[in-house]
Amino acid sequence: RELEKFANEFKVRRIKLGYTQTNVGEALAAVHGSEFSQTTICRFENLQLSFKNACKLKAILSKWLEEAE
């Protein structure tokens, strides 16, 4: 439930900031050390990743959002 809420909020905030899914994937290299594909970001936003992978990505995306805003 919390993950679903974060995924929805993330998408809204990403769009408000003017980032595409591809931009986010590339920008994550600075935060995490490796890029993520547009497909991975899309699957996260649509809750199509495994729970374990989504939880890992949530932590990375939270950190990125803090820096982007």
Score class of each variant (00 low, 15 high):
Glu66Leu: 08
Ile15Leu: 10
Asn8Pro: 03
Ala30Val: 07
Glu9Ser: 10
Leu28Trp: 03
Lys63Arg: 11
Ser62Asp: 13
Gly33Pro: 08
Leu49Trp: 00
Gln48Tyr: 03
Glu35Cys: 11
Gly25Ser: 15
Leu49Ala: 00
Val12Ile: 13
Glu26Trp: 07
Arg43Cys: 06
Thr20Asn: 08
Glu67Val: 08
Ile60Phe: 04
Leu65Gly: 03
Ser37His: 04
Ala30Gln: 11
Glu9Lys: 09
Lys63Gln: 11
Thr20His: 00
Ala68Val: 12
Lys16Ser: 08
Phe10Ser: 06
Asn8Ser: 14
Ser37Tyr: 06
Ser37Cys: 09
Lys63Tyr: 06
Thr22Tyr: 08
Phe36Gly: 00
Glu66Arg: 10
Ala29His: 12
Thr39Asp: 15
Ala27Lys: 07
Lys5Thr: 10
Ala30Met: 10
Arg1Phe: 12
Arg43Pro: 02
Leu3Tyr: 10
Glu4Arg: 10
Gly25Asn: 01
Asn53Glu: 15
Ala30Phe: 04
Trp64Lys: 07
Leu28Val: 10
Leu57His: 10
Gly33Val: 03
Ala54Tyr: 09
Glu45Gln: 03
Lys5Phe: 07
Ala54Met: 15
Leu28Tyr: 04
Lys52Cys: 03
Glu2Tyr: 05
Thr39Pro: 08
Val12Lys: 12
Lys52His: 14
Leu28Thr: 10
Leu3Cys: 00
Ser50His: 11
Lys11Ile: 07
Glu2Cys: 00
Phe10Met: 05
Glu66Val: 12
Ser34Asn: 14
Gly33Tyr: 00
Ala29Gly: 08
Val12Tyr: 09
Asn23Thr: 11
Phe10Trp: 00
Phe51Lys: 12
Glu26Met: 07
Ser37Phe: 01
Lys52Gln: 14
Lys56Ile: 09
Glu69Thr: 00
Glu9Gly: 02
Leu57Gly: 06
Lys16Met: 08
Leu57Cys: 10
Leu17Thr: 00
Ile41Ser: 02
Phe44Lys: 00
Glu69Phe: 05
Leu57Ser: 06
Phe36Asn: 03
Glu2Ala: 08
Val24Ile: 06
Leu47Glu: 05
Asn53Met: 14
Lys58Phe: 01
Trp64Val: 00
Glu35Leu: 10
Arg43Met: 15
Leu65Pro: 03
Thr20Val: 03
Ala29Leu: 02
Ala68Gly: 04
Lys5Gly: 07
Asn23Ala: 15
Lys58Arg: 11
Ser37Val: 02
Leu57Ala: 07
Phe6Tyr: 02
Thr20Gly: 05
Asn46Ile: 01
Ala30Asn: 10
Ser62Trp: 13
Ala68Gln: 12
Asn46Arg: 09
Gln21Thr: 13
Glu69Gly: 06
Val24Tyr: 03
Leu61Trp: 00
Phe10Leu: 04
Ala59Glu: 15
Asn46Glu: 08
Lys58Ala: 07
Phe10His: 03
Ala54Trp: 09
Ser34Val: 12
Ala29Arg: 12
Glu69Cys: 06
Phe44Asn: 00
Lys52Ala: 13
Phe51Pro: 11
Glu9Phe: 10
Glu2Arg: 05
Leu17Ser: 03
Gln38Phe: 08
Asn23Arg: 13
Lys5Leu: 10
Thr22Gln: 15
Val12Leu: 11
Glu35Pro: 08
Cys42His: 13
Ser50Lys: 11
Ser37Asn: 14
Leu57Val: 14
Glu67Gly: 09
Ile60Met: 10
Glu66Ala: 13
Glu4Trp: 08
Leu47Asn: 15
Ile15Met: 14
Leu65Gln: 01
Gln21Pro: 09
Ile60Thr: 06
Ala29Met: 08
Val31Ala: 13
Phe51Ala: 11
Gly18Val: 01
Ser62Lys: 09
Gln48Phe: 01
Asn23Gly: 14
Ser34Phe: 08
Arg13Trp: 04
Thr22Trp: 15
Ile15Cys: 09
Lys11Leu: 00
Phe51Gly: 08
Ile15Phe: 07
Tyr19Arg: 04
Arg1Ser: 10
Phe6Leu: 02
Ser34Gln: 14
Gln21Ile: 10
Ala29Lys: 10
Lys56Ala: 10
Ala7Lys: 00
Leu57Lys: 07
Lys63Phe: 02
Leu61Gly: 03
Ala7Met: 06
Thr40Val: 09
Leu17Lys: 02
Leu3Ile: 10
Glu67Trp: 10
Gln21Ser: 07
Phe51Gln: 13
Val12Ala: 15
Val24Glu: 00
Phe6Trp: 09
Leu57Gln: 05
Gly18Leu: 05
Leu47Ala: 10
Ile41Asp: 03
Lys58Gly: 05
Leu17Gln: 02
Ala30Pro: 07
Gln48Glu: 13
Gln48Ala: 05
Val31Gln: 13
Leu49Arg: 02
Ala59Ser: 13
Ala27Ile: 11
Ile60Leu: 11
Phe10Pro: 01
Leu65Thr: 01
Ser37Pro: 06
Leu17Asn: 04
Thr40Trp: 05
Val31Tyr: 09
Phe36Val: 14
Leu17Glu: 09
Thr22His: 14
Ile15His: 08
Thr40Asp: 15
Asn53Thr: 15
Leu49Asn: 02
Ala54Pro: 04
Lys52Met: 07
Phe6His: 04
Cys42Met: 15
Gln21Phe: 01
Phe44Glu: 04
Arg43Leu: 11
Lys56Gly: 09
Glu2Trp: 06
Phe51Ile: 12
Thr40Leu: 13
Leu49Asp: 02
Leu57Tyr: 11
Gly33Met: 03
Phe44Val: 00
Glu2Val: 01
Phe44Arg: 01
Ala27His: 11
Arg13Leu: 01
Asn53Arg: 15
Ala68Asp: 03
Glu67Met: 10
Glu66His: 09
Cys55Ile: 14
Thr22Ser: 14
Gln21Val: 09
Val24Met: 02
Lys58Ile: 00
Leu47Ser: 11
Glu45Pro: 01
Lys63Glu: 14
Leu57Glu: 08
Thr20Ala: 02
Cys55Arg: 09
Leu49Met: 14
Glu9Tyr: 04
Thr40Met: 07
Ala29Val: 01
Leu3Lys: 04
Ser50Ala: 09
Glu4Phe: 09
Ala30Asp: 07
Phe6Arg: 02
Lys5Tyr: 10
Phe6Cys: 00
Tyr19Asp: 04
Ser62Asn: 07
Gly25Met: 07
Leu65His: 01
Asn46Ala: 11
Leu47His: 15
Ala68Lys: 14
Ile41Trp: 07
Ser34Met: 11
Leu28Ser: 04
Phe10Asn: 05
Cys42Lys: 15
Gln48Asp: 13
Ser34His: 14
Leu49Ile: 10
Ser34Ala: 12
Lys5Val: 09
Val24Lys: 02
Ile60Ser: 06
Gln48Thr: 11
Ser62Phe: 13
Phe10Ile: 00
Phe6Gly: 04
Gly33Glu: 02
Glu35Lys: 10
Thr39Ser: 12
Gly33Gln: 10
Leu3Pro: 06
Leu3Arg: 03
Ala27Gln: 14
Gln48Trp: 01
Gln21Met: 08
Cys42Leu: 05
Lys56Tyr: 08
Ala29Asp: 04
Ile15Gln: 14
Leu47Arg: 12
Leu3Val: 07
Ala27Asp: 10
Ala54His: 09
Asn53Asp: 15
Ile60Cys: 08
Leu61Ser: 02
